[in-house]
Design a protein around this nucleic acid. Structure first.
Lengths: 340, 340
DNA sequence: AATAATAATGCAAACGTTTTCATTTTGATG
DNA sequence: CATCAAAATGAAAACGTTTGCATTATTATT
């Protein structure tokens, strides 16, 4: 590729026989230039192949037209919906999205935030509320509009719109209790450094303890976030006579792993054991048996977060301390049933 | 949020008692400034909370440090792996990724490309090879480094690294034929405007026709890309006596829908009907029955595309016409068996 | 100690736009 | 046709950096 000299605004101006100022105006305030010249300029733009340089605009305190999004990973169905909705919403407000992923490394998250700020993003979206002090400090110091997604917490330090994971945990635990189960096992991802998982777990445990149901240590399994891992991790639950009557999984993927483990051990779901997930991922409704779970509506979260961020950016006077909880709902399906 | 005056390089310079030029050098060519002053500058940067303005750098013909990625949608497991690997690879070369989605609308894709070029991305990644003439023309006119991902075609107009979807189609069709099946049905997404699906379909059909196996019209089902849709679309295949002995699905999601349809109609997989997919999505290995499919290795594609794009950007002399095919492999699992 | 070479720094121009202010053109009004 | 207001345009400064060149400080060499 040879680096061709790209047309700039001056080339266009010369080509159209006007001053650069007029070209600029024609682009940014079309009503301020005579329709006739505007047409001439338009023609010159096409003929020269001119494309505005946003860097040069941005330098004038003008808007960069970008927002940043920092997520742990893209490679995860959980976030896909969320990000897509967030992106769509902001795009409809004229923003382009800069995305960076940190792979659950909070140090890296901080570095990425700095990098996005170098690009002068007008706002940032973050996932969750578990961030380094430096990260919070940087956002506050610069006054960057910011919204946290996915997790909802009452007293969050930054505006957040999310699922109330704690509530979701409570919902599914109540469901299981109401079916009459007492011998309950938990299969959850490691909660440290993952506030979503922690909140769910808290919700579940609080409800169970409230009903005087204790979970012995060997019935609280920790697993990684994959079907395969969950399957392996859950298998010990199905050996011997001491089998729980219900299992609550930290999310639907894990629940699926649990169900596979049960099948492999010739344990019938839900006749022998009820299994419940959290999340209602695409597919959960179509599994066999279909999975009882809690619908979290990530696209609503993303969309709402986009709206909030847009408001924070364009109307800085607006109350910056929004905390929006997107309601979740129990999806009772085949994988849970009454304890006989 | 009140807009605080953010520190610029001059503030830092004053703070450190040096000239702006020295600050700039200290940042960009640290070896060119005395360790002592460098330390002083570093301190001033921290105290003022200075963050470089990349727009101002970019204006100097310096690099913007961004690459653009335009995808149909993020909300799709197919692309998740791919994008993540692409992003990781480029991040390790120091780029930040600008992402935009067009929702399978090629007009919008063109608009997005323009928008990314306004941001002076140093390169762009696209999905597939089906683009508007304007899109190709714009890329060529500006000489923007560009790589197309996911689909591999011999004579592609731009560098591409992808799965050979045609080959994948051939592979799975051969597998089914080798098992002895002759009564074969196809369940594919609409191929128009989707060159990946089209290539797969071509591969399948070519092999079948080569073996003189014809697919009657009513055994070539079209469906949308979702488990639910595929399930509904495939159901008619299982009514009556005239049931195929094998079904090839355009991808694993559709295959899963087909399997659900079969179960619902009391048709046993693979005893009554063999089902094969394409893609080997996460989960396909753990379904019941586990799905025979073709592994496409999207992460390899993303990674390789990142490498190519980096090379195209940093070494413009390099041959720009790379066409890399990532090999796929047959994953024989439980959902297909020999025709008795 | 004087000189030469080298390292460190500063000055000012440049990058591609936008915008303020001044100037010119246009059109309306008397 | 003269005058004035309004509309359209241009000239030049500004934005926050980087960099080539000039200058000054430092170190090595004799």
């Amino acid at each position: 590729m040879k680096t061709v000299k790209q047309a700039d605004i001056i080339d266009v101006a010369n080509h159209a026989g006007v001053s650069p100022a007029t070209v600029s105006r024609s682009l940014n305030h079309p009503d301020k230039v005579k329709p006739d010249t505007r047409k001439r300029i338009q023609k010159a733009i096409e003929e020269t192949g001119y494309i505005r340089n946003r860097a040069a605009q941005a330098i004038h305190g003008r808007r960069s037209g970008t927002v940043g999004l920092i997520v742990p990973t893209l490679d995860n169905a959980i976030f896909a919906n969320l990000i897509q909705a967030f992106s769509d919403q902001l795009h409809s407000s004229g923003f382009t999205m800069l995305v960076a992923t940190h792979g659950y490394d909070l140090d890296r998250e901080y570095t990425l935030l700095r990098s996005l700020l170098e690009h002068r993003v007008e706002g940032v979206g973050l996932i969750g509320l578990d961030h380094k002090e430096e990260t919070y400090a940087l956002i506050e110091r610069r006054g960057t509009p910011c919204v946290s997604m996915w997790n909802y917490i009452d007293d969050a330090r930054i505006p957040c719109v999310g699922v109330d994971n704690y509530q979701a945990g409570r919902t599914i635990a109540k469901h299981v209790l109401e079916l009459g189960h007492k011998d309950i096992a938990l299969v959850f991802p490691e909660a440290r450094g993952n506030d979503r998982a922690q909140s769910r777990l808290n919700g579940v445990v609080d409800v169970l303890n409230g009903a005087h149901v204790e979970i012995p240590k060997d019935r609280h399994i920790k697993t990684l976030y994959s079907i395969k891992h969950a399957r392996e991790a859950a298998t010990p639950l199905f050996v011997g006579d001491y089998i729980p009557t219900a299992i609550i999984a930290g999310n639907d993927v894990i629940a699926q792993g649990v169900i596979h483990a049960a099948h492999a051990m010739n344990v019938s779901i839900p006749n022998d054991v009820s299994v419940a997930g959290i999340g209602d991922f695409s597919g959960s409704a179509h599994m066999f048996p279909s999975l009882s779970t809690v619908r979290l509506r990530p696209n609503k979260v993303g969309q709402m977060a986009g709206i909030i961020l847009d408001r924070l950016i364009n109307d800085p006077e607006s109350d910056a301390s929004d905390h929006i909880s997107i309601s979740s709902e129990l999806m009772k399906r085949e994988s849970t049933q009454i304890f006989r």
